[in-house]
Design a protein around this nucleic acid. Structure first.
Lengths: 155, 155
DNA sequence: CGGTTATAGATACCATGTATCAATAAGGTG
DNA sequence: CACCTTATTGATACATGGTATCTATAACCG
């Protein structure tokens, strides 16, 4: 989770203009530590900065996703509600999502994954170029007090 | 990929009615061996059985997904086009998707994955309950003749 | 064959996300 | 600082995936 300033600097460096709406959406995005839907983001922005348009929110989300500042994660929800967004650092990593509170923890575990990939390559003769891995479970906090928040979970 | 008859029997056994449209959509779904979008399925059905309604196609897809006859897979496509469907057997397994021709191979590799899960649990104190894993790459056929079909790939 | 009820088709609807387009404002230049 | 170029904005319309609703139909059970 890079700071607002770092991302602004990067945007500037890559030739993007540092506009008011962009700053605002960026700040709002980086504030969040759990996955959020575009609708949730749009709601809070509409309340705190009613002049910012919906398209701008999506455009900024898209820009940040392309830059790797934000990741799209997929959830098995019905209708169009299968995407969530999440600010994250740039390194390659995976997500560990709490079914109960929605909190997301990153983890880097490439040794076991590489072993798996090599084994699959050997067996299938595929050449594996990428992967998508998400783990779902219960975080330590939620395992203890198991009746706090709810979250329309994944998987 | 179970046969049409097996699924029909199962539907019947679970109290679902074996209607004409349901049979037809089911057959059309089981014919496919690569992932398909709802739009693609709807197109071919509309041509071969124009009286079947769009809602019925979605309802049947949903039913088959709930039964585990079909899996939803997620792809990083823009707009609402992030879902694809795929007929598959009921055992737990993962998908290996060819970036070039879209062919999907199942693989079962739970040893390395379990090792990974245990390691992550140890490090994060999460209790891991599920996972979503997809590998993307190039299948043997496409690696050889590398200019046949194209496929708007994943990741 | 007849009755009950799940299911079908039609239609309207909702949500996510994008294309378009005129108006605006960022940032470089003189 | 004023000016110019051009990226970006907000508004609007649009495209698409999927669902809710409602009446008509047709599976299945007796």
């Amino acid at each position: 989770m890079p700071g607002v300033e770092a991302v602004l600097e990067r945007l500037n460096h890559e030739g993007y203009r540092l506009t008011g709406p962009r700053r605002f959406v960026l700040e709002e995005v980086l504030k969040r530590t759990s996955p959020f839907t575009s609708a949730e983001l749009w709601d809070t922005i509409q309340q705190s900065a009613p002049t910012i348009g919906r398209a701008t929110v999506f455009r900024t989300l898209d820009l940040l996703t392309r830059l790797g500042v934000v990741q799209r994660i997929h959830r098995d929800a019905e209708a169009g509600r299968c995407h969530a967004y999440l600010a994250c650092d740039e390194h390659h990593h995976h997500h560990l999502i709490c079914n109960s509170c929605g909190k997301v923890t990153d983890f880097h575990e490439d040794r076991a994954l590489e072993a798996l990939v090599r084994e699959v390559e050997r067996r299938t003769s595929f050449q594996v170029e990428g992967h998508r891995l998400e783990l779902v479970g219960t975080c330590p906090a939620c395992r203890d007090n198991s009746h706090e928040q709810t979250y329309t979970g994944n998987q």
